[in-house]
Design a protein around this nucleic acid. Structure first.
Lengths: 340, 340
DNA sequence: GTGCAGGACGCAAGCGCTTACTATGAACTG
DNA sequence: CAGTTCATAGTAAGCGCTTGCGTCCTGCAC
């Protein structure tokens, strides 16, 4: 026997001198109560500090007004900026967010295995999380709506940027400036399931080079592990070459930061000797004075949140596969190649 | 009438040829069912992909196994690293996390006003969120457990670092190296309710100076707005002085990053001409080669998560006011003052 | 053989809501 | 003035679970 501890809908009903049903209707906005009654009940509820129990409501109604957001990582800028957008958008429509972090392969497997337990949510937002076919099938079989933020997942609604185009822009910028020996610090991909971005971005780099008729020198393409450390290492690798590149495209800003660190330590002038362009426009890119191609991360999150809302509202969203534009942000780490 | 869409406990009961009560007991681990029956029911439930509805369980039982985490900001490193720790710790004990972001004063007010609605959670974790007295009282009156992560809140359990000590360490490092003209880039505090860190850190700076008998020159103390931009501006301000400092303590690493940018642009050698020390050990501090005082952020989150668990388990935590140690991380932005 | 303890299980009363259905009376219509 | 209509309000049947209590049965002591 659990001690009754909070106010009840019945308490409100009693005090207002109406039935529980009326209270429910008044509070939920459903029709069937006169404006005055509604107002009276509402103000009473407010004064008493009463609010409808979401759990009971969910049980009775069948939907929870709750959404789960699943992210592979919380402490990295990209994911948290995305999350920020999602939460902001969802907050506006009074939708609660349940947060799940699945860092490792194992956790992911487990998460999807336990997914049925999560039927406490109406929808699932995946932040750039790659999943296996089997997991996708499980998802499809469930009655939750699924939205992908920062990627693609079958026919589910999604929001993302064009990774190929984004890297193409980065490389093109260097090509336009006259660079030819352009390196790429890509990503080693230590994941079991591949994230979409690395492959797409490498492809974009190659596409741009192709278009300009500049052959890709494979020794200028390195793939260290992801992150600042990897960037530093990758850059070091490139510096060891007989003829280092005059410019590099970094797979992401974080990688570029690492590359810049190596260059600074090596006493290599940026952009005099080597130009560096990143991808993402990390919140600290400006502090590094890094030229980069900006992808609107928080906005992607917001859009994803809106997609969720639309899907939940029932009406099929006008446009459920959103692709946001990216654009070059010129700062101080790129310039023309030094005349030989 | 909502269409029954998922499996029911009744479905399982029927198939297993037992009563609903037995299924509930078998699945929840409660006593009262024979080991064989339990096993049978469990495997059946597993095969059918059935899981107990958390909502119904909560309704019937009165507790939700859900915790709300409230943060003023999601996209900044500090908060998301903290969140990361909290989520990780809570994930281990199967506690779901509801996430709330309250960016502005107004949202905060609203959040606390609506708090009763949140009785869907068993506990509340506040990430370094300053709240008003009135709000605190509301909190105290509610039956939720409250844990503060990265700060103090009345007698509630909390995890944090000593901001005074942390800034003291930063300044001392410079003093030991022989600096005397040490600037402070603090924080302007545009918040209505003051965050604890700024004041504490400024105090720590002053304490260290005092201890070394070095008078604080007020013109060397600037308080721009928080963040990288503020840091850049604050540093610029200091550079304008007739005699700029030979070293600066930045209120946080992000501020230090901005300061470094200004110095680089101004062509001022770091640390030859000016040393810079930050506070926090931001995930990118290493990329900036920034000397800083490290505070264990994610770990604070983890500890906060553990506090929640303890509080929820009922047993009063052995130690509910945790203060984690910080330590200087030497990197390349500090050195001895240049001999005059 | 009788009595009793105790384990395994079913019954049924909620938990706090939503909502289909029904009742009531006021406002209209012809 | 009877006959309708319609807005408002109440009744009560669940939603899917937990749990106190009662029942039954087996095993054992006397």
């Amino acid at each position: 026997m659990v001690q009754r501890t909070t106010l009840n809908m019945a308490d409100i009903a009693r005090q207002a001198g109406v039935s529980i049903a009326s209270v429910s209707r008044a509070l939920s906005g459903a029709p069937g109560v006169s404006p005055e009654t509604r107002k009276h009940i509402r103000s009473l509820a407010h004064d008493l500090g009463y609010t409808v129990s979401p759990d009971a409501a969910r049980l009775a109604r069948g939907t929870s007004g709750r959404v789960a957001v699943v992210t592979p990582n919380l402490s990295h800028w990209f994911y948290s900026a995305m999350l920020d957008g999602i939460v902001t958008a969802l907050h506006e429509v009074e939708t609660d967010v349940l947060l799940y972090e699945v860092k490792h392969e194992r956790e992911r497997t487990r998460f999807f295995a336990e997914l049925p337990a999560r039927r406490q949510v109406d929808a699932l937002v995946l932040i750039a999380l790659p999943i296996s076919d089997e997991e996708r099938q499980r998802l499809d079989k469930m009655e939750v709506a699924v939205v992908m933020a920062g990627g693609v997942l079958g026919d589910h609604p999604h929001v993302r940027v064009d990774d190929v185009a984004i890297a193409d822009q980065a490389a093109s910028h260097l090509l336009v400036a006259g660079h030819e020996r352009i390196g790429l610090i890509g990503s080693g991909g230590t994941w079991v399931l591949p994230y979409a971005a690395p492959a797409g971005r490498e492809q974009g780099y190659r596409r741009a080079m192709d278009r300009w008729g500049v052959p890709v020198r494979e020794d200028l393409v390195v793939r260290p592990v992801w992150g600042t450390g990897g960037g530093a290492e990758g850059m070091a690798q490139l510096l060891c070459l007989r003829r280092p590149p005059t410019a590099v495209v970094a797979f992401s800003d974080e990688v570029a930061f690492g590359a810049l660190l190596t260059l600074r330590r090596a006493g290599v002038g940026v952009p005099e000797r080597i130009s560096v362009v990143g991808i993402d426009d990390h919140e600290l890119a400006e502090a590094f004075d890094l030229t980069t191609v900006r992808q609107p991360v928080t906005e992607q999150g917001v859009r994803a949140g809106e997609l969720v809302r639309q899907v939940l509202t029932g009406r099929e969203p006008e446009e459920s596969q959103v692709e946001l534009p990216c654009r070059l942000v010129l700062r101080g780490t790129t310039g023309a190649p030094r005349p030989t």
